[in-house]
Amino acid sequence: MKKTCLRCFAFLAILTFSLEKAYSQRSDFFFDFVPSYKTNGYGINGNINYFHSTTDFFRASFVFASSKEQPVAGLEFPYDDYMLGLGYFTTLVTSPKKGFFMYLGGGPSLGYKYINRGETNFPFDAVDAESSFIYGGFATFELDFFLSDTFSIVLPITGFYHFNSYLNDTTLLLGGGIRYYLD
């Protein structure tokens, strides 16, 4: 009887410590995956984030955006953007009791714009564009709503500006996705 009670107590202690660890403060690293809407297309963001302090974090962002350009009515051609952004974010508004945070950040961005499946012949003379590397910057405003200590819903608005892009120097992505915090 005494051994059974001791085993139950040990099991409860281990369970309590593991649950406490699982529901303790968030870790320094968190990841998010955000499908996005883009004019005449869509985008997908994958972000790796690291908290520098309690309010600021660094981000490495991997972005794919696909769209169609329509220079002349009735004619269109596809183009894709593959981008990498490195940024710094700070907290604008925080309400931990309600599980709500608002962030603003940005940084440099570089990538590759893949135009018309690599072909440079267009059935019209309105555009002179070819696939190339692009560089510039990005800015993001995002809302973060916590579901638990591990998961949250993130709603970002991200704007990119690329100086040397043949098509659409600016790109705006509106998204909504899931954020995961590591323990």
Rank of each mutant, 00 (worst) to 15 (best):
P71K: 06
Y37C: 06
M1Y: 14
F62W: 07
G85M: 01
G137L: 03
L104M: 08
G176T: 08
F30H: 06
F33P: 13
E69H: 10
D128G: 10
F51A: 10
D149F: 04
K2V: 14
T16I: 12
A126P: 07
Y181L: 05
F31A: 09
A60W: 08
N116Y: 05
G177E: 02
M102N: 07
L6Q: 15
Y103Q: 03
A60K: 04
G137F: 01
P71Y: 05
Y181P: 03
T158A: 05
G87E: 00
Y114D: 03
S61C: 04
Y112S: 07
A126C: 08
V34R: 01
F133W: 11
D56I: 08
P96R: 09
S152R: 01
E20V: 15
P156R: 00
R179L: 09
T120C: 04
K21I: 12
S67N: 06
L84I: 12
T90A: 05
L12G: 11
C5H: 15
L84K: 05
L15C: 12
G41V: 01
T170C: 10
A22T: 13
S165P: 03
F160R: 03
L92G: 03
S27M: 11
G118Q: 05
R117A: 06
S24Q: 11
F101D: 10
F146M: 07
A10K: 13
Y37H: 11
T39S: 12
F30C: 03
